[in-house]
């Protein structure tokens, strides 16, 4: 087995014009308009592809239930993400401390990045039941691995001479961790968190497919079974908006906390 050896790479920045949020928003509006016009002009059956106006009408009439679904999925994803980040950072720190632990487990952590570990989700739901917990656990373990790997690589990036300097000031292990190692690792931790946001959303939604009573995954699944295409599109758009909002929140936090690092 040749396990992937590289750490989770930084997501290459979306190049050129697309990086701009305003342009992205304009693109969305243009696409929705084109979609509306095309569906009307070509007289597509709404059962195949409903016009956005119909999708928004469905969203509006089902707004209470849909808001509940967004809330549930967001809660599951956030809970999982938070736990994944905490455990990930803690394991990254432990790896940096205990060389043997790293050599024993890191290969598996890195290999997990090349495997659809979401397949274990079915088993997780079996273990943790149909409630919020199982989805949060799935989101946790999906976001955990990249955060752990990148915390370690971030801490490894610390120059040993800088550790030495702090030691000459009389700093202990914890002070070196807080004042030097974690701040240095923060950019690469954030890179992993940006990746983890998407994974946590996917974890929550797919977890809901294995059994749940509420959430965006449930909206998508029931719409599929009922062949309710407007509802399905409503679910897709809301998933996109929720995921993008979560991602944007992380990017804002990153700008606030690691402004000093170039690739923000």
């Amino acid at each position: 087995m040749s396990a992937p050896s590289a750490p989770v790479p930084a997501v290459p920045g979306v190049p050129g014009v697309a990086g701009n949020a305003a342009i992205q928003l304009i693109a969305l509006v243009v696409m929705l308009a084109a979609w509306e016009v095309a569906v009307r002009a070509l007289d597509v059956s709404p059962g195949k592809l409903p016009p956005p106006s119909a999708v928004f009408a469905t969203m509006w009439s089902g707004r209470v239930a849909l808001a509940g679904a967004v809330g549930t999925t967001l809660y599951e994803a956030l809970l999982g993400l938070a736990a994944g980040i905490v455990f990930g950072v803690l394991s990254g720190i432990s790896f940096s401390r205990f060389r043997l632990l790293e050599r024993m487990l890191l290969p598996y952590f890195v290999a997990s990045q090349a495997v659809p570990i979401i397949a274990f989700g079915a088993i997780i739901v079996m273990w943790f039941g149909n409630g919020v917990a199982s989805k949060a656990v799935i989101a946790t373990y999906l976001s955990f691995f990249p955060v752990a790997v990148n915390t370690l690589t971030g801490i490894r990036r610390v120059n040993p001479e800088e550790v030495g300097l702090l030691r000459t000031f009389g700093a202990g292990t914890m002070e070196i961790l807080w004042k030097l190692q974690l701040p240095t690792a923060l950019p690469s931790i954030f890179t992993a968190v940006r990746l983890a946001v998407g994974l946590a959303m996917v974890g929550a939604i797919v977890g809901e497919w294995f059994g749940a009573s509420q959430g965006l995954g449930v909206v998508l699944l029931t719409a599929m079974f009922d062949n309710h295409v407007e509802q399905l599109w409503a679910g897709i758009l809301l998933t996109g908006v929720t995921g993008t909002a979560l991602f944007a929140a992380v990017v804002l936090l990153q700008r606030k906390f690691v402004w000093w690092h170039a690739d923000g």
Binding site: E161, E162, G164, L165, K179, L180, W260
Partner: peptide, 9 residues
């Protein structure tokens, strides 16, 4: 030390 090792943050 030889390099200033200031913390960028």
């Amino acid at each position: 030390p030889q390099r200033d090792m200031l913390m960028p943050w």
